[in-house]
């Protein structure tokens, strides 16, 4: 019975988990509610990478994982696996998004106007250390605009299209119910448009940034201009079995469209959208989308390279799996190594 006494794997893993959870302390509904309120952008990021829109569950996942993003995303995705698919929502169209923020770097002004919305872009990033001295940092109240911008804004690309400026990507007409779903089918290459955009939508923010940044620095062919960046809320329209369309609720979404002059003499567009508000992710993702066509195999902007290497659950899981014992494979290599040495010795003339 010597084996059991020296290993005791079951007890060890139980206690190791307890040690981790003990350090986090009890997880209460209040803690989850506070996280949701205090960290909306982190909740957004987790929902985007998990491809599951539920701020309460995302906050719960963050609480349970102690803020480890990869753990939180995995928790949500694994939960998603157990849920049945009830219906497929109608596609969200740009012009129907309830827009909070919408800017373009391509023109000084655009139809519908530049809407700054909530942003820290022009804020000075100064740590509010007075809070540490016991004061409260109270944000100054917002003065509402005299004429509020309309909630729905047209798409800039539509204006460009009408003016013959953009190369329209080839369209494949698919019924909404038949749009390929990368969570139900494997990602294969060349990927369908739906699979590419879905993979970008659930990609790791940091991964997209790293590869997108490499494209921006010159490893890609196309330098992006932000055609349109939008933060908003989209209605989730689903069909009642009786046939009527109704809104099942709203989700926060971000989308970016970047552009550059294409080979055809027209503008090429790159696009990325995701759940939640996450500007870095959609700009980087759209830049990668813009660079994907014509990229050389194995280049950091080629679609297969990008999509395989920015999958947060796969990448993080494989990274940490190297902690698992590998002594059988190591033993096998060792045997080959020793065998080669013996063979070498044999070859030495006596």
């Amino acid at each position: 019975m010597a084996y059991v006494a020296t290993r005791g794997g079951e007890r060890a893993i139980e206690q190791a988990e307890r040690l981790y959870r003990e350090a986090l302390g009890p997880i209460t509904p209040e803690r989850v509610a506070e996280l949701r309120l205090a960290l909306p952008l982190l909740v957004d990021r987790v929902m985007g990478e998990a491809s599951l829109y539920d701020p309460d569950l995302a906050a719960l996942a963050l609480a349970q994982a102690g803020g480890d993003l990869y753990e939180a995303v995995l928790l949500l995705r694994a939960w998603r696996t157990t849920q049945p698919r009830l219906t497929i929502a109608e596609p969200v169209r740009q012009a129907e998004i309830l827009t909070h923020r919408r800017i373009s770097a391509a023109f000084k002004d655009i139809p519908g106007g530049q809407i700054l919305g909530p942003t820290l872009d022009y804020a000075h990033r100064i740590l509010a250390t007075e809070v540490m001295e016991g004061e409260t940092f109270t944000p100054a109240p917002v003065t509402p605009a005299a004429t509020p911008a309309p909630a729905r804004q047209p798409s800039l690309a539509d204006w460009q299209r009408a003016n013959g400026l953009v190369a329209d990507p080839p369209r494949s007409e698919v019924a909404p119910d038949d749009i390929p779903d990368v969570t139900r089918e494997p990602l294969l290459f060349p990927a369908s448009r739906a699979h590419s955009l879905q993979s970008l939508a659930r990609a790791d923010t940091g991964g997209l940034l790293a590869l997108g940044y490499s494209a921006m620095r010159g490893y890609g062919n196309a330098h992006p201009t932000v055609n349109e960046l939008r933060l908003g809320e989209a209605e989730v329209m689903v069909r009642h079995p009786s046939g009527a369309l109704f809104s099942a609720g709203r989700v926060r979404v971000s989308q970016a469209e970047v552009t550059s002059k294409g080979k055809s003499g027209l503008l090429d567009l790159g696009f990325c959208a995701t759940f939640g508000w996450n500007e870095v992710k959609v700009i980087a993702g759209a830049t990668l989308d813009l660079n994907a066509s014509g990229a050389a195999k194995g280049s950091p902007v080629e679609e297969e390279f990008v999509l395989y290497h920015t999958e947060p659950v796969e990448a993080s899981g494989f990274c940490i799996h190297f902690k698992l014992p590998h002594y059988v494979t190591f033993q096998s290599s060792l045997d080959a190594l020793r065998g080669a040495k013996t063979a070498e010795k044999d070859e030495v003339p006596a």
């Binding site: 995995l74 694994a78 494997p186 659950v313 993080s316 899981g317």
Partner: peptide, 16 residues
């Protein structure tokens, strides 16, 4: 054979 491979409550690379 390619398959969708759902997420399960273990990290990828750990026998999923």
């Amino acid at each position: 054979m390619p398959y969708a491979s759902r997420e399960v409550p273990m990290a990828r690379g750990w026998g999923t």
